[in-house]
Design a protein around this nucleic acid. Structure first.
Lengths: 167, 167
DNA sequence: CGTGAAAGTAATATCCC
DNA sequence: GGGATATTACTTTCACG
């Protein structure tokens, strides 16, 4: 699962930024913006996908518009040592968990949970707490967002030390 | 900014799910899967965009492949009352903050931060701490992810009570 | 709401510099 | 590496049930 570093220049950065801004931008349009032909842009995009820099293209939706109006982060504490493999299994059992990771600090894991409403969230929490080795949870309900939802990772501007920028 | 409820049926759900799975799926292909013509699918997608259910199409990237190898959640505590408007301003000053929200619990806000490495993260943290009314921060570094990165919100399967499913 | 057809664009494959 | 071209495929518009 280790990815080798792959050549990635300024033009690639701009292509990635363009596709993050709009995954449906045509190769010709991207090319016109950065001074390449559509063919050259396509070749680079193909390479960016093959090398795993671009992992896919997705539609972004407003969860609230689909009925998911409640959002929370949940710290999970386990009995004894919690092997990440086992934790990952548990996490996959609950579709309301939209992100999960192990973190530093007291908690064994941090979950991002979406629910339709507070009642649903409570139900999810009880379901999670029922899992064998979960000892306790601490929840932080999201009240309001301070940033327009960013597609999580971008490449908008040039960045320090070989990293394309986020947002 | 209040969105009226908009008609949203099973076909719309499948269309949204298809576009989340791959934003470049053609209307004809989606139509073949759900029993509609490409034209009908396009009309529905146009409506889903106009009504704000679909907010855009974006490329997904592996941040690590772009040089962002460090990730953390940061709780922020402010002096006195922290008006979300002011907090939002502060957050926008730091491009490394990829998500920010007010939350229940002791902290005034929770930030998601990406940095190239630990040194960079420390620099970001110091920069955030320098902001006028930030009193203290508590950081949780992300160690490993337990779910394949989900596009944050999806509509994969039918869900309870009028909500399209996530993941 | 849905369809199908026609016109305009874009994606892709192939060949050349 | 990049570009030009030709073919295939998709998007978009429109007339119509």
């Amino acid at each position: 699962m280790v990815h080798r570093p792959v050549p990635f220049d300024e033009l690639d950065r701009k292509i990635v930024a363009a596709l993050i801004a709009n995954a449906r931008t045509s190769f010709a349009e991207i090319g016109a913006d950065i001074g390449l032909s559509a063919t050259a842009v396509k070749r680079r995009v193909d390479r960016l996908r093959e090398s795993g820099i671009i992992t896919g293209f997705t539609a972004t939706v407003r969860p609230a518009a689909l009925g998911w109006r409640t959002e929370a982060y949940v710290e999970v504490y386990c009995e004894g040592a919690a092997p990440p493999r086992r934790l990952a299994e548990v996490v996959r059992n609950h579709p309301e968990i939209t992100a999960a990771m192990t973190v530093t600090g007291g908690a064994d894991a941090l979950l991002h949970v979406r629910a339709t409403d507070v009642e649903h969230f409570e139900e999810v929490l009880e379901r999670i707490r029922t899992e064998p080795f979960i000892r306790k949870t601490i929840s932080y309900m999201v009240l309001s967002h301070l940033l327009p939802d960013s597609p999580e990772a971008g490449a908008a501007r040039p960045a320090a030390e070989g990293a394309a920028d986020l947002r």
